[in-house]
């Protein structure tokens, strides 16, 4: 979005009634509006998948803070996406226990199958691949999350099963 478009957008109409209600619920237990900044970012991202410049400006206006300050917050947290992501985000654990159990090979396998590296999204917009701090399932290493599902004991066969037969995957967890 360029500056000219930004000026002419009515920021008050960007957020949905549902989003505003959810943000208001968070505002009820913080002493000043910017205290709900992270909650608001998560609420807006929940339906839209990511935080666009327009969403960011609208949230900042609603919380009576500068867009620049909110941008500093949004870009700090790795689960807030400032670029569009796929329908499902793959949070890939490459921390120490998963590394010992061979996660580098698994990551290569994902790249081979889906054609994406860290920070990238598949052409069909189904998946984005992002590294994540230790997922707290080290006894089941290597692990990753696909959307909301934790997938454990990863090996090449499981990656094939997950991503080469998408009809099968849509069933959810493994």
């Amino acid at each position: 979005m360029n500056d000219a478009q930004m000026i002419h957008t009515d920021l008050d109409s960007v957020l949905s009634a549902e989003e505003l209600t959810a943000i208001d619920r968070e505002l009820s237990h913080v002493p000043y509006k910017s205290g709900a900044a992270i909650d608001a970012l998560k609420i807006v991202q929940a339906k839209r998948g990511w935080i666009s410049d327009q969403s960011l400006q609208a949230i900042a206006k609603y919380l009576e803070m500068s867009a620049e300050e909110l941008e500093g917050i949004a870009t700090f947290y790795n689960l807030i996406y400032r670029r569009p992501v796929g329908k499902k985000v793959i949070l890939f654990c490459d921390s120490v226990s998963c590394w010992i159990c061979g996660c580098d090979g698994i990551k290569q396998k994902i790249t081979d199958v889906l054609g994406i590296n860290y920070g990238e999204t598949t052409e069909d917009k189904e998946y984005s691949l992002i590294p994540v701090p230790c997922l707290g399932a080290c006894d089941k290493a290597p692990v990753m999350m696909v959307g909301d599902d934790l997938v454990t004991h990863l090996d090449d066969a499981k990656i094939d099963e997950l991503f080469t037969d998408k009809a099968k995957y849509s069933g959810g967890n493994t």
């Binding site: 120490v96 701090p133 230790c134 707290g136 006894d139």
Partner: peptide, 8 residues
Amino acid sequence: DEMEPGAF
């Protein structure tokens, strides 16, 4: 906020 590498 369990995130220490190796903690589960």
